[in-house]
């Protein structure tokens, strides 16, 4: 269960894309989830004030909106890292070594599932199945897929991304 830790995070600026979504879905039945998806697409996560704004236009109490947010795995209450690593935990990846990949990620980046590091460089997520089982075990880094991994290849890959992330952070 997600915690309401984001309460202390500073509010991001209001963005027009989300404002348009609020307008477009006004008064539509079943609009809550599309609105939350739009908020997340705009901000990268669901900021607190988006919950209040959605509650305002839909007439659904903020607590209920929050209940829907925490029910679905897709919604995040915190911003993510620069690189989002999605570890495929589908059945094929599991039998072909996903647990070993997970250990290696923890070893190299110090992240467990669902965590983001302090500098917001990396976030580790799991997905139920990316659907390229013949390449298992697989991870995705942002939009790119890396398949047929073993611990050694993964270590090399992670080190490369770590370096890239540090460089981008600096300049």
């Amino acid at each position: 269960m997600k915690q309401m830790e984001h309460v202390s995070a500073p509010d991001p600026p209001a963005l027009p894309a989300f404002g348009r979504a609020l307008w477009r879905y006004r008064g539509q039945r079943g609009a809550l989830i599309p609105l939350l998806q739009s908020a997340q697409e705009t901000y990268g996560y669901i900021p607190k004030q988006a919950i209040y704004e959605i509650a305002g236009v839909t007439g659904i109490p903020p607590a209920e909106v929050y209940g829907v947010v925490t029910f679905y795995a897709q919604f995040r209450l915190e911003p993510q890292g620069r690189y989002v690593i999605r570890l495929c935990t589908g059945t094929a990846c599991h039998v072909n070594g996903a647990p070993m990949l997970e250990e290696t990620i923890e070893e190299v980046l110090g992240l467990k599932r669902g965590e983001t590091d302090g500098e917001r460089l990396f976030t580790l997520e799991s997905v139920a199945c990316i659907g390229c089982c013949s390449l298992s075990p697989v991870i995705m880094v942002n939009d790119e897929t890396f398949g047929k991994l073993d611990a050694r290849k993964l270590r090399r890959l992670l080190k490369r991304f770590k370096k890239a992330a540090r460089q981008e952070e600096r300049g």
């Binding site: 935990t89 589908g90 059945t91 094929a92 139920a128 199945c129 659907g131 390229c132 089982c133």
Partner: peptide, 11 residues
């Protein structure tokens, strides 16, 4: 398509 080892419907 929730079964974590299936991609028929997606394909």
């Amino acid at each position: 398509e929730g079964d974590p080892g299936a991609f028929m419907d997606r394909s």
